[in-house]
Design a protein around this nucleic acid. Sequence first.
DNA 1: CATGCTTACGGATCACGTAACCATG
DNA 2: CATGGTTACGTGATCCGTAAGCATG
Lengths: 85, 85
Amino acid sequence: MSLEQLETVVAIAEEGALVRAARRLHISQPPLTRRLQALEHELGTVLFERLPRGMRPTPAGERVVAEARQILAAVDRLRTHVEDP
Amino acid sequence: MSLEQLETVVAIAEEGALVRAARRLHISQPPLTRRLQALEHELGTVLFERLPRGMRPTPAGERVVAEARQILAAVDRLRTHVEDP
DNA sequence: CATGCTTACGGATCACGTAACCATG
DNA sequence: CATGGTTACGTGATCCGTAAGCATG
């Protein structure tokens, strides 16, 4: 698991589609497909339902997204605490 | 910043030396030197004092290690919450 | 001279982007 | 046929390990 993967699932959840998440992360779509697949494989769970129009989080996905947000916030705090103790 | 880097600083702080942290992480020393340097460079702060015998965290290093531990714990919780909701 | 950190270097792996493909409304 | 996700493939970047170097008690 990597922080990039956590950013990825949060972005997908908020944008509702890989295409838009990709634009937001300044990356192309295929890497996002692969990051998500890798995380789903590592966790052994499907995190998003593939709809015709986009992506919708599964219940497990919802939980992962919520915890990912907290982890990323803690990382941001770490960064700012170093600059401004 | 990566989770591996956070694991690295925690291991260095607990072992007091790169050599021992390297053994604990099943890796050789040079990668640890580089991981630490990369993180210090990214944060713009020296995290460990280089002693003749080993490494001692600076005040900033202490804070980073403490927050890193919390982040890594949150990541572990995420993993277990997925297996056992 | 033993311990421990750092730098150099070559090679394997990873992760990207482009392109092609597939599915659905 | 427009939108959006996935798969294939080649290339550039990353990261490791070995080896050599350097400092200190």
